[in-house]
Design a protein around this nucleic acid. Structure first.
Lengths: 269, 269
DNA sequence: AGATATTTGTTCGTATGTATT
DNA sequence: TAATACATACGAACAAATATC
């Protein structure tokens, strides 16, 4: 109960930062983090209630609330009202992390080319890694995703849906990875492209080649993974990415023209 | 002035999320984001002052402050007191984004192997990309970083410093990238390793081979980049990563045993 | 150097909303 | 339905920081 109150930051040697002393809510939220780690708290566990935190940190309700809001914004807790309610530790939802990262790139003017430069090396690695531990259950999920675009689209609307489904195939792949870093990074890149597909003008002109070749590559990929051949999976995915990159090359749109909402859906456009 | 108040989320189809209606601060902070994008505001621009926001959103001071705290936590604004003060839009600092991402992996049990699996494909790509646009100025920065470990360490303390400096070489490389995604991802991986070097027990046992071979590889890398040979740079970096991965293989420590502080330095250990 | 005005930061008291029992 | 336990929101007052004169 005493180590909790230890001030940790003070932002020792800050040359350019204007704030020498972090404000109270920041200090409290960092102290709560330490409390969480020191007590070895896990997702699902409940933090002390507001009145207790007020007493524990000798801070007002407003300050505690701001501190909790910081933690909530970081995705570390979620709060519920009512009896038995309070602030609960959460495993940060991937959507939330994607939104936070997307904000980071807001002023950075990402291009489609930037995204594919990385996909071109990460996705093949992902494919090789998955080959080691994917089973029939996962292949079934992947194949059920593919039925959405196993035929030419009848309408513009359907083409749009197919593009999204194609991206969801890669989303699934990422989720299956045993490497959390690889899972997040591949998933994040797809989320950027998905956002483009949903909100922006890109993908507006029909591109039958993209669908057809994508479907074919993905089929070959599953084959190779079923056969347990990581190097084949790697090179098929590589070819898939190279082809997609080329077909997207004209679309040199700038990504990310709006901030992503942390709690829920993106803004329509 | 009216579109600003539009509610955007409502979290439409949420099956598992308990909260049907986002609370007021969340709504206000999202509305402020929309205001920022609609007005085309840029880093350095100032948001309306608290009293104005209170009027604009018909919310209490506490609510507005919580909303601003959310934006601040996301790294989107920084506030200053005093005349001419207020909330200023910021280009999210990389440290801040690193800390947010580090939190995401807190419950994910990252291993050293996970980190190197990705470095092994991203760093070579980075090396090839840099070759296209790096000049003498950048080479000078890199070489000045290398002097810290151009000789065997005399003390444990110096070895520690050398390890950090070696990582900073890669941090520089990442910063130089013209691809913001590549820059962030490579930088983030290094920040994870750096955190290990500073806070955790890893890197505890001397490893002269790691330094010696690292120094040699980095020298060759600069040569290749100077010569404008991207494929040579790529393969040298690849070899560098493969070697480092192997030398780190025993250190199967789990990364990230503490949350990172958003405003300043990490917690000592 | 000191006084002052401006703007955010913090606190308290109270009232309201919401989910469980 | 009512009671209870908890978060959520409001408003007024006061404190602290900082730029300017």
């Amino acid at each position: 109960m005493s180590a909790v109150f230890t001030r940790l930051d003070k932002s020792g040697a800050d040359s350019k930062s204007r704030r020498a002393v972090p404000n109270r809510p920041s200090v409290v939220s960092e102290a709560i983090k330490i409390m969480m780690t020191d007590k070895g708290m896990m997702p699902g566990d409940r933090l002390p209630q507001e009145p207790d935190l007020i007493r524990a940190f000798s801070a007002s309700k407003g300050t505690i609330r701001e501190a909790l809001k910081m933690l909530e914004t970081q995705g570390l807790i979620q709060t519920r009202t009512g009896p038995g309610g309070g602030a609960f530790i959460t495993d940060i939802p991937t959507d939330h992390a994607n939104a936070l990262m997307s904000n980071y790139f807001f002023f950075k003017n990402l291009s489609i080319g930037d995204i594919y430069e990385i996909r071109q090396v990460l996705e093949p690695e992902l494919a090789a890694e998955l080959t080691k531990h994917l089973g029939e259950k996962e292949f079934a999920v992947l194949e059920s995703t593919m039925v959405a675009y196993d035929h030419p689209p009848a309408t513009i609307k359907e083409e749009q849906r197919q593009r999204i489904a194609e991206l969801e195939f890669h989303e699934r792949l990422a989720e299956f990875s045993a490497n959390p870093l690889l899972a997040f990074m591949c998933g994040f890149l797809v989320s950027l492209l998905k956002d483009l597909a949903v909100c922006r003008r890109i993908y507006r002109n029909p591109n039958p080649e993209l669908r057809e070749r994508g479907y074919s590559y993905q089929g070959q990929l599953i084959e190779a993974m079923r056969a347990g051949d990581p190097e084949a999976a790697r090179s098929i995915m590589k070819a898939h990415m190279v082809a997609a990159r080329r077909l997207m090359a004209k679309q040199e749109a700038i990504v990310n023209r709006g901030f992503l909402s942390l709690n829920g859906k993106k803004r329509g456009a």
